[in-house]
Design a protein around this nucleic acid. Structure first.
Lengths: 285, 285
DNA sequence: CGCAATCTGTAATTTAATTACAAGATATCC
DNA sequence: GGATATCTTGTAATTAAATTACAGATTGCG
């Protein structure tokens, strides 16, 4: 846990003097990291050993170590404490908060994603006869995105956001086919059905979903992200971004696995778009 | 600039001993921040003052200050140096790199996005009679996502990824309608046409696209992100994530503007999903 | 009210970092 | 090619910072 959060959370366990220290640090954290223990003690109007004890209480080795932790908490991109959007936030505030909480979510996702499973998923995908991406609601756009990416690999890939089409597609799947089911909660009934049907028909089912969810139970392979979602907003945000990045990772793993020769294909696809675009040079002139 | 990048960039300006220090730090930066100057000097096989001089050359006040900067560079979310995916990268490496470069892109986007324009876009959206989201290719999934978000607001919202439908929709637009055109490059001809048509029909056109692009010229309001895209991969990655976050921001601004009463609606929409899902409690038992 | 436990500050000690200076290496110019 | 100038590097001394040990003060509880 972030040192700053830690300070806020354990404010009740502090003694009177320690709280003085906490207040000063929270008020100007940026200044703190460039202060000596003497300067900070003076600011908080306490003695130097008190500051030292304060640092130790926060499970740091001492004042210099504490400053290190604090510096990391304050580093760019790292969300400070309480980055939830508040009613009274102006555009500046909520823009910063959303960017920061999204970045924080990605960082969490990075730490939690199981590399071995990612690797196996790439394995499976590279050997697939056909790849299907299924998602509903917010996850549908992730599925679309995945299709857009894998489509470039010259592999048969489909994507449906319609349960009837998904069902028909799942029933028609066969051994060697890979079905990727995307759902943040993993509790969407229809999608669980799809996964079950696909597996009954010998397809490999990869779930981009919460570990230990009903959907996860139906999958051959589960890619869990476990991003804490700010449910206050009633809209999936961070989770879906994390899913997209995961898709990016799978796609990247795919291209790397296929080797350099294969990457020529990507260039071809990219070049094919040229006709539909304004030329960069033409426009600049 | 990040201290780590700085070290890498100025590696040529270092003397022999300083380079030894640089190598040791780059090899185990995490260890460095918990070492004393003596320990680091020993690891690099140089004297303590050399380490100190090294720190000063990097525009830090001294060794402790340098460690602070290093700690911040290493803090979560901050991309390290050279985060491009390489041919020989294993799953561990490319997973980390993609997460990190995405986070870096978001950080750049956060710094570059113009808050005033965001605010005006929110203004326009809250007053819209109808909102349309148009995107092609990779941006189509962003448009879908936007539809999914704004749909919850009980506002007429459409989304087309088909140029014919987009065209028809644009022609039918009228004053008070808002058209959001999404394109990373802003050079997709068809989408420029759509923007032009919509404006001719008095719709307000918001462009989520590159500043100074042909598409931007056709828009009433341009939300530029200017995320540096790693074009080596021939696939849009970071840019699209940034676009999504921007949509999140617009949606958030929208709900905040509409006030707390309005937010009840969101809860309703969310609750309506319950029937289609496995209950959390049921499953846990 | 008094004892015990906890908190807090002073002063001494230890540790770490920096400075000053001298020796060595390298480059440059005649 | 050698001598001087400049830059680099290390040793030792100095200074600054942080930590420890201890004693006084405060608070809580019987």
């Amino acid at each position: 846990m972030n040192v700053l959060e830690k300070i806020v959370n354990s404010v009740n366990n502090f003694s009177k003097s320690e709280r003085k220290v906490a207040d000063v640090i929270l008020a100007n954290p940026q200044t703190t990291i460039h202060s000596s223990i003497a300067a900070l003690a003076k600011m908080a109007d306490v003695s130097e050993p008190t500051v030292n004890r304060f640092c130790r209480r926060l499970d740091t080795k001492g004042f210099p170590d504490f400053k290190l932790h604090l510096a990391q908490s304050l580093a760019n991109g790292t969300p400070y404490v309480n980055r939830h959007v508040e009613e009274e936030d102006g555009p500046e505030a909520y823009t910063a908060k959303i960017f920061e909480s999204t970045m924080a979510a990605l960082d969490t996702a990075r730490q939690r994603v199981d590399i071995a499973t990612v690797n196996r998923a790439v394995d499976v995908l590279t050997q697939a006869k056909k790849i299907s991406f299924f998602g509903l609601g917010a996850s549908a756009s992730v599925a679309h995105d995945a299709q857009n990416k894998f489509f470039r690999f010259n592999v048969p890939v489909v994507c449906f956001d319609d349960i009837v089409m998904q069902r028909m597609s799942a029933i028609n799947s066969a051994e060697g086919d890979v079905v990727v089911c995307i759902s943040h909660t993993g509790r969407t009934k229809n999608l669980c059905d799809i996964a079950a049907i696909a597996r009954e028909n010998d397809a490999t089912v990869i779930g981009v979903t919460a570990y230990d969810s009903p959907l996860a139970k139906e999958c051959t392979l589960v890619l869990s992200l476990d991003v804490p979602e700010d449910t206050d907003m009633y809209m999936p945000m961070a989770s879906r971004v994390a899913q997209l990045v995961l898709i990016d990772i799978l796609a990247t793993g795919f291209t790397l696995r296929r080797g350099s020769k294969f990457r020529e294909n990507l260039k071809k696809v990219k070049d094919s778009l040229r006709g539909s675009r304004f030329d960069k040079k033409d426009f600049n002139n």
